[in-house]
Design a protein around this nucleic acid. Structure first.
Length: 566
RNA sequence: UGGGGGAUCGUCUAGCGGCAGGACGUCAGACUCUGGAUCUGACUGCCCAGGUUCGAAUCCUGGUCCCCCAGCCA
């Protein structure tokens, strides 16, 4: 299917296209991605990043990276660094346009002075609690503060002294003078500046007053010449305030705020608060835990930036609240990995298989394709010998119907090797469990040895016992057991839906020798199992550790499941 | 309750007065030295009630349900 006739479009791109056509902003398109450096980026941010950078690209415009760092008590340099790393990894480039709201503190201060001079802002000396009280409720109008009528001179003096550090935190704030009776609570004299004697990660102790989001954001947009300021739905009723600030500050560029619905995903949570709790309470191993929807978690899990971008393109942009199925994300992941990941053979739960009629001590080097989807990826040689490991799941002593794998008396193909028939099993005398399978092979059935071969229903993967490398494999599953853990499910807290089986560590896995020295973060398809990547932190030359990125679609599992429910 | 938004297949999304379409998913089949991939077919939807119109998912009226707002967070 061609990408051009199914070109993704949405209401925001329509607005931008109209604006360009109408010559608004001189036909310019300039967006920005404005994270607050108070946490790590997750897949929800990826949606916004792809939108903002994507629109800029499509319309021949620019997109800035701007840190919205107006609250020194919550922000830090570490987040600034990790956010930049994640945006780059996702594949976007802000070139020389890395900005900080804190770059504009002096200009912002001057805008505040302008508002005071125009009689549009005043210093309030009510306490936080009193302000809340004066604000009124959803249904009742607020009351005006007794300090609302201070003179311009007094306000100027007080505001200068706030900046000079003459007051303690909370003693005064600067407020916009709008309308205490507005049905939109955001317009009931919102706070523009507050006193915070805190060290800022970039401006240090230069300032002890800091602008609020509602004041800093529109002005930062305007200063950078942002044309379309895209944000999420919860800011919709801040838009009148956004416009008020730009109008009253008499700026040259009046940016346009447009809101869209944030991303939600099934079987996970995407709120900063919940993510933080999962990390801090130790439910996961850290921000880069492969079970987390954080960009660093997905990266460690083995997700590709391309898959995430394709996902973001295809979920669309709209205004209705929605929850996208995790399966869709996995679909784009598999689609990408299927095309690119080299195939290897690995056995997760080994079962010894002995070929009784295969010469002892003989080793054959068999040719295997690195990727049947892409012959240009070439071939490699895999050692084959008398003793192998196969997957425990690939043998059944009492095979159910349609079990095309190995069972007593049954034949199966060993991938890239021979057809074998199971002739005997060895059991543990105590548990009765099958610990070894004996087969005979048919030398005439070697892979590629002829065309008119015998056909068998099943093909299974294997590794040579003598040549296999030991490995640890971490199997990941959904973090939660229910599709919507964040919602109040019968009044239960989301934590009670944590999946106790979200991580399973297998330590006695066997992988083919070509995996020796596999590079950190490199990705493979373990044939018939799934996609796996070399863990970036715990894997080394002499200790291979793989993370399962996503399993292959498993139609046998479906058949088996329906058999059981009957 | 005041204000701001939103309701289209199971899920996400298109439609802009003229045959409700795509993707994921699900089911059935083909093919296959990965029960993968690929291919074929099927599946299910306009929140409700009125109205305007030759014709309504779309326009009008009235409902219903869902989300957001009472930070000196963003």
């Amino acid at each position: 299917m061609s990408e051009t006739d199914s070109r993704p479009t949405d209401f925001i791109r329509e607005i931008v296209a109209q604006d360009v056509k109408a010559g608004k902003y001189g036909g310019r398109v300039h967006t920005r991605f404005p994270p607050e450096p108070n946490g790590y980026l997750h897949i929800g941010h990826a949606k916004s990043i792809c939108l903002n950078f994507g629109i800029a690209q499509e319309f021949g415009g620019l997109c800035n990276l701007r840190f919205d760092d107006t609250n020194p008590t919550k922000e830090s340099e570490e987040y600034v660094q990790s956010i930049q790393r994640d945006v780059k990894w996702l594949g976007f480039d802000w070139e020389d346009r890395l900005f900080y709201a804190s770059d504009y503190f002096e200009q912002l201060y001057q805008f505040a002075v302008l508002l005071i001079k125009k009689g549009k802002a005043y210093v309030d000396s009510l306490s936080a609690e009193e302000i809340r009280h004066y604000r009124g409720t959803l249904t009742e109008p607020g009351k005006e503060s007794p300090y609302r009528s201070r003179s311009v001179e007094e306000n100027l003096d007080l505001f200068a002294r706030m900046r000079a550090g003459e007051f303690r935190d909370g003693e005064h704030v600067l407020r916009a003078k709008i309308d205490m009776a507005s049905p939109n609570l955001n317009l009931r004299d919102p706070t523009l500046y507050r006193i915070r004697h805190a060290t800022h990660h970039r401006t240090g102790d230069t300032w002890c007053i800091y602008p609020t989001y509602d004041f800093a954001h529109p002005l930062s947009d305007s200063i950078e010449g942002i044309t379309h300021s895209l944000c999420t739905l919860e800011f919709e009723d801040h838009r009148p305030l956004y416009d008020w600030v730009l109008t009253e500050c008499e700026v040259a560029c009046h940016s346009q705020q447009i809101e869209f619905a944030r991303l939600n995903l099934t079987y996970t949570v995407l709120s900063k608060r919940k993510l933080l709790e999962l990390v801090e309470e130790g439910h996961v191993a850290g921000w880069n835990d492969p079970r987390l929807p954080t960009l660093m978690g997905l990266r460690r899990r083995g997700y590709t930036p391309e898959a995430i971008r394709r996902f973001c393109e295809h979920i669309g942009i709209a205004k209705r609240d929605s929850v996208v199925e995790m399966g869709l994300l996995e679909h784009f992941l598999r689609e990408d990995l299927n095309r690119r990941a080299p195939r290897v053979m690995a056995v997760l739960r080994p079962l010894r298989l002995v070929i009784d009629n295969y010469p002892e001590g003989q080793v054959e080097e068999l040719d295997a394709m690195n990727n049947p989807e892409d012959p240009s990826m070439g071939t490699r040689r895999i050692p084959f010998s008398r003793e192998l490991y196969i997957e425990q799941d690939d043998f059944r002593e009492d095979p159910p119907p349609k079990f095309y794998r190995l069972a007593p008396g049954q034949e199966v193909r060993l991938r890239y090797a021979y057809i074998v028939r199971c002739v005997d099993v060895v059991k543990d005398p105590h548990t009765g469990a099958v610990v070894e399978v004996h087969c005979t092979y048919d030398p005439a059935t070697r892979s590629g040895s002829g065309q008119s071969q015998r056909k068998v229903k099943g093909t299974i993967h294997w590794v040579s016992a003598l040549h296999a490398l030991p490995a640890e494999v971490r199997l990941y599953d959904a973090l939660f057991t229910v599709p919507h853990p964040g919602e109040e499910n019968e009044g239960r807290d989301y934590r009670s839906f944590l999946n106790p089986r979200s991580l399973e560590i297998l330590t006695s896995c066997k992988v083919e020798p070509s995996l020796k020295g596999a590079a950190p973060e490199s990705r493979f398809q373990f044939e018939r199992l799934g996609y796996f990547c070399v863990d970036a932190f715990d894997s080394s030359e002499n200790r291979l550790v793989f993370n399962r990125t996503v399993a292959l679609r498993d139609s046998w599992a479906k058949i088996e499941k329906t058999q059981q429910t009957r």
